[in-house]
Design a protein around this nucleic acid. Structure first.
Lengths: 254, 254
DNA sequence: CCTTTATCTCGTACGACGTACGATAATAGA
DNA sequence: TCTATTATCGTACGTCGTACGAGATAAAGG
C-alpha cells in the first residue's frame, strides 16, 4: 500500500471500478500537509508540536490499539484541550497519516545494499513485517492512507534503489514495491488476527468445536481431511518467508 | 483472510506478537451464530428475517460504502425499528460477518475443475478479485472477520478440492488458500484506492504536483527516474495476473 | 377459556465520537 | 499602543452503537 498513489502516477491505468468501499472522495492536500514552510512570524506561540502529538497518538495505538486513538484521548495524553489538536492537523484522518509516516521513520534507509536485488528485496520485506508487528495497527491504517510523507518516501527511495539491478523499468519497480507492501500488510494482518485469537482460549475452543462440527457434517470432506492433517506446526515466520521467496524469485525483467 | 481462523487450527503456531491493533478480544460465538437451530416454538412471530436485514445491509454497502452501513440506516431500509435488528444479530460486528458470508454465496462452487490445479487456483483467485471489485467494501470487512460462515466454507471446500492434485498436505493447502485470499484482498484494496483517486481530478493533480516537487528536490533520484519512466500503462488486471502467476507457479509440494 | 412463559418490537436514553463555532489569550509588526 | 495574526480550548451539535424496559404477540399448560 505504501506508494499506492505513487505507482499510479507512472503509466496511468484504465478499467473502471465501482464506488469506493470505505472512504469519501475528500482527503487531504498533500502539498499543504507535507510541504508547508515552517516559518511563523506573528501570533501566539504554539504550546505543543505536531511531533509530540503524533508521537502520543502512536504510543496510544501501540499500547491499546487503533480504536483507542480518539482526539480526546490524544489531547489528554499531551495535556492539551481537544480542539487544540486541530491547529496541528486539520482532522483525524490526517493525524493517522502523520502517525504512519512517523513510525516509518524507524525503518533504516542507509544500511548497505548487497547488489543481489532479490536478497535485498526480501530483506526489505522482512523489515516491513517486523515493523508492522511492532505497530500492529499499521496494516489497517495503511488501507486508508492517501499520500506518502517524507519518511515513507525515504524508504520507498531505498526500495527503488535496491531494485535498480533488476532491470525492471521505473514504473514496474514502483509497482513491485507497492504489491510487495500490500502482500506484507495482508500477511501481517492475518498473522496478528491468528495470534490474537490464540491468546483467548475460550474463543479458540469454541471455534475449534464449530469447525469440527462442520467437518463432521459430511458435506465438507476436504475440510475434514485438512483439519485432521498432522503436519508439523509452521511458524508464521516460516510461512511468510516461503511465500515471500516464491513471490520475489518469480520476478524478472522478461 | 478467508479461512484465517481455519488455517490456524491445523498445526497451531507459536511466536508471540504484540497486542492486536484494531479489535478487542470479545468477538462472536461461531457455534451460536451459524449452527443454532431454526426451530421456534413460542413467542411472537418475527416480522423480518436475518436474510432480509443482511441483504439490505449489503445493498447499502454496495451503493454507498461501508460507512453508510449504520444500524439506523439498515433498520430504515428494512422498515424496522433500530433496536429490532438486535433480535437478528447481537451486534454490528456480527452483522458484518453475516454480510461477508451473504455475498460469498455468489461465488460458484459447482463449476468443473480441470485437474490442472495451478490453473484452477488461478481461476479461483480471479473469481475472488471480481467478487471483491463487485463489493468494494469486502477487503476492509475481511480484515475484521472472525469465523467463516456456510457460504464461505463451501467456497473454501471448493478451493481445497482444487488443490488436492498439488500433493500439498491439508495444513499446507489451508495455508495456501489463506495467503492467496490475503493477497487478492491486498491487491484489490490497492486497486480500489487507485481507481477512487483517479476519479477525483483535483486530488490527483495535487498529488502529482506534490510528487513532482519531491522528485525535484534532489534527494529522491530513484523516485524521479521512476516517475519519468514512460512504460506503456498497465491495466490493474494485467498487474494482478502477473503477480498471481508468480505466486502460484512458485508453489509446489516439496 | 385464561394464565404463564417465551419471544419479538422498538421508543427512549446514555455515553462516546469527530468537529464547527467563537470567545479569549498571546505575540509581532506598525 | 494599536492592530493583525495565530493558538488555545469550552461549549455544543449531530451521529454513532447499544442497554433498558415496557408493550405486543404467540404457543403451552391448566
Amino acid at each position: 500500500m505504501i506508494s499506492a498513489r505513487v505507482a499510479s502516477m507512472a503509466g496511468k491505468e484504465s478499467e473502471t471500478v465501482p464506488d469506493d468501499g470505505a472512504s469519501g472522495a475528500a482527503g487531504v492536500d498533500p502539498e499543504q500537509l507535507w510541504l508547508r514552510s515552517a516559518e511563523r512570524r506573528r501570533g501566539r506561540r504554539p504550546s505543543f508540536s505536531r511531533e509530540a502529538i503524533t508521537a502520543a497518538a502512536v504510543a496510544l495505538a501501540d499500547a491499546e490499539g487503533l480504536d483507542a486513538v480518539t482526539m480526546r484521548r490524544v489531547a489528554a495524553e499531551v495535556g492539551a484541550g481537544v480542539m487544540s489538536l486541530y491547529s496541528y492537523a486539520p482532522d483525524k484522518e490526517t493525524l493517522l497519516e502523520l502517525m504512519v509516516d512517523h513510525v516509518s521513520g524507524e525503518l533504516p534507509t542507509t544500511n548497505p545494499l548487497t547488489g543481489d536485488w532479490r536478497a535485498d528485496l526480501k530483506a526489505i520485506a522482512h523489515l516491513q513485517r517486523a515493523h508492522m508487528l511492532r505497530h500492529p495497527w499499521l496494516p489497517a491504517a495503511l488501507a486508508t492512507r492517501r499520500t506518502p510523507g517524507p519518511n515513507t518516501l525515504a524508504f520507498l527511495e531505498r526500495a527503488l534503489a535496491a531494485l535498480r539491478p533488476s532491470g525492471l523499468d521505473g514504473a514496474a519497480r514502483l509497482e513491485v514495491f507497492a504489491q510487495l507492501t500490500a502482500f506484507v500488510a495482508g500477511h501481517v494482518s492475518h498473522e496478528i488476527t491468528q495470534a490474537a485469537a490464540a491468546r483467548s482460549p475460550d474463543r479458540s475452543a469454541a471455534e475449534a468445536r464449530y469447525l469440527a462440527a462442520v467437518a463432521a457434517d459430511g458435506h465438507h470432506p476436504e475440510l475434514a481431511e485438512a483439519l485432521a492433517s498432522t503436519g508439523r506446526p509452521l511458524t508464521p515466520e516460516a510461512t511468510f518467508t516461503r511465500f515471500l521467496n516464491r513471490l520475489v524469485d518469480g520476478l524478472d525483467a522478461d
